[in-house]
């Protein structure tokens, strides 16, 4: 029988190894799998390369993972937001590497990686500093840069609902990078608020088909990053 449910966030991330590449979903706090990130902090893996749109806020979630020195490099489009202090301090101190990628290129690199496409061409970033060092080619008179697909060892994603096959539906704009990150990782790990029986999710509305998901853990009432930051909490 196929059953992708695991009992706890700790169990879900137990085999993340030092030096792993980990995609972490979320756009700001929307879709950030905060309980999985906290479990990864407890687990202790170091030297991680994190692929994520932002770098977290306050002292919780992704910002806490970075603060505890677990992240060697981020591949990211917007590594600062309101209440984001951890990454800027570490970056200025030369303690973390940044690969800055335009947001749409980041999304397409992840999509391509998950679809087995090693590279593609895009007009985004042509004529800017982010074109530097990349192969260019002209299509129908338009210059494009070559960008490589991105894959990962693990992805940590938050969704709304799952069944034991790993079929997923998301919540509003918290969907953001979740579906493509599930496709691009060898082991995609998803926290959901609710587990339902197979068939309860209409096949017509499944957003991520279960084949892209390896592990699902139920976190019924996930923490809100902004609320924790407001309350001045930190993790652990």
């Amino acid at each position: 029988m196929i059953d992708k449910r695991v009992a706890s966030a700790a169990e879900a991330v137990a085999d993340v190894h030092d030096g792993a590449t980990v995609m972490i979903g979320g756009f700001g706090e929307a879709g950030s799998p905060i309980e999985l990130i906290h479990a990864l902090i407890d687990q202790g893996a170091r030297g991680l390369t994190v692929v994520s749109n932002n770098t977290g806020s306050g002292d919780v979630g992704l910002a806490a993972l970075i603060k505890h020195g677990r992240v060697a490099k981020v591949i990211c489009s917007y590594p600062r937001t309101a209440n984001s202090t951890v990454f800027p301090e570490m970056y200025r101190a030369g303690r973390i590497e940044l690969e800055l990628v335009p947001q749409g290129t980041l999304a397409e690199r992840i999509r391509a990686g998950g679809a087995g496409i090693p590279a593609f061409y895009t007009a985004t970033a042509v004529g800017t500093v982010l074109e530097a060092g990349k192969e260019t080619r002209s299509f129908a008179g338009r210059t494009c840069v070559m960008e490589h697909g991105l894959t990962a060892d693990f992805s940590l994603v938050k969704a709304r609902r799952a069944d034991r096959y790993g079929n997923l539906v998301y919540n509003k704009t918290a969907r953001n990078f979740g579906p493509i990150m599930c496709t691009a990782a060898s082991v995609s790990i998803v926290q959901v608020e609710e587990m339902v029986s197979p068939g309860e999710i209409d096949p017509e509305v499944v957003v991520t088909p279960g084949v892209f998901v390896k592990r699902v853990v139920v976190v019924p009432d996930p923490a809100l990053e902004s609320q924790w930051v407001r309350e001045g909490r930190s993790y652990p």
């Binding site: 756009f27 700001g28 706090e29 929307a30 879709g31 749109n53 937001t81 309101a82 947001q103 749409g104 980041l106 999304a107 397409e108 992840i110 999509r111 998301y170 919540n171 509003k172 704009t173 918290a174 969907r175 953001n176 990078f177 979740g178 579906p179 493509i180 957003v207 809100l224 902004s226």
Partner: peptide
């Protein structure tokens, strides 16, 4: 908190709106 715009401010969705992932959006 899960319905926000690119500036990470809360917004609403009109009747007839659609949600999608980042690769579709771009």
């Amino acid at each position: 908190s899960e319905l926000i715009n690119a500036g990470k401010k809360p917004v609403t969705a009109i009747p007839g709106a659609a949600y999608f992932h980042h690769a579709d959006s771009f």
